[in-house]
């Protein structure tokens, strides 16, 4: 199953001394690896190859494939829907923090920030662009991508099956204007706490259209996952920026 090329000896990217990865192993990597290899973890983890997905990008009016970044840019992926008022804005804001830091660190051309919606029905290109505007996204840097699968079926294939980021329609959701609550599937404290008190401006319902896992995937420019942050492993923006910086600078220094 393996094709050897001259100079490449580390076939398993997880082996120590491997040159595909910059960051060290995450906490409890052995257990994560055992769970992942045993089929118990749906999402890629440290050392896995980035899923090979191709999704239309609304800002650039073309399809973007994860493979096109190989050799070009490190990548961050997160998975959102624009109507979400709990975890998603924070996930998107985390990528925005990295985008801003990419200017400070002069690596804006070496990172791609990919915000993937799993609600293409509602999240039209215009909706997504306005959503990004509200979070301060800088489109002129040309490193931000809104990836919008063409259908919910396509979203399920990419977001849930390839990236292992759970999402599900909330059957109790009462439609537009139904409020700001959130299901308990996001694994994010802010969302959960916010729900209990949501007497929001838009109605009585405490539900949102989807429940979903909160996940950010950081992959290096060789197409290998350096970190998957999810659930209780979600980072502060400081920690995320630090990890990205380590990858960027380690990459530059490693060649």
């Amino acid at each position: 199953m393996v094709t050897l090329t001259a100079g490449c000896t580390a076939l398993d990217p997880r082996d120590d001394g491997d040159d595909h990865l910059i960051l060290g192993q995450p906490d409890q990597y052995d257990m994560l690896r055992e769970a992942r290899d045993g089929g118990d973890l749906a999402h890629p983890i440290y050392g896995d190859e980035l899923p090979d997905a191709t999704v239309p990008c609304t800002l650039h009016e073309r399809e973007v494939s994860t493979a096109e970044f190989e050799g070009e840019r490190h990548t961050l992926f997160t998975f959102i829907f624009a109507r979400c008022h709990a975890a998603c804005p924070g996930l998107t804001a985390s990528l925005r923090h990295v985008q801003d830091d990419s200017v400070d660190g002069d690596y804006e051309d070496r990172i791609a920030l990919c915000n993937v919606t799993f609600d293409p029905e509602h999240d039209t290109p215009a909706v997504l662009e306005e959503y990004g505007d509200g979070l301060g996204v800088d489109y002129e840097l040309d490193n931000w991508h809104f990836l919008r699968p063409e259908s919910e079926a396509d979203a399920r294939a990419v977001v849930e099956e390839q990236f292992g980021c759970y999402f599900a329609r909330n059957e109790d959701y009462e439609g537009e204007g139904g409020g700001h609550g959130h299901g308990d599937g996001d694994g994010n404290g802010a969302g959960d706490h916010a729900d209990e008190h949501d007497d929001g401006e838009n109605g009585d319902s405490m539900e949102m259209a989807f429940e979903h896992a909160s996940m950010i995937v950081l992959a290096n420019a060789d197409g290998y996952v350096e970190r998957t942050y999810t659930g209780a492993r979600l980072p502060s923006s400081r920690d995320l920026v630090d990890d990205v910086r380590t990858v960027v600078e380690g990459w530059d220094g490693g060649d």
């Binding site: 257990m31 055992e34 769970a35 118990d40 599900a168 492993r233 502060s236």
Partner: peptide
């Protein structure tokens, strides 16, 4: 997948390496 994730968490617990997952 959510069930899988939960199963994965349980499996991690059974493996019993280390104490509670501390993060960040």
């Amino acid at each position: 997948h959510r069930r899988e994730l939960l199963a994965g968490t349980a499996a991690l617990g059974v493996a019993g390496v280390g104490a509670a997952v501390t993060v960040g």
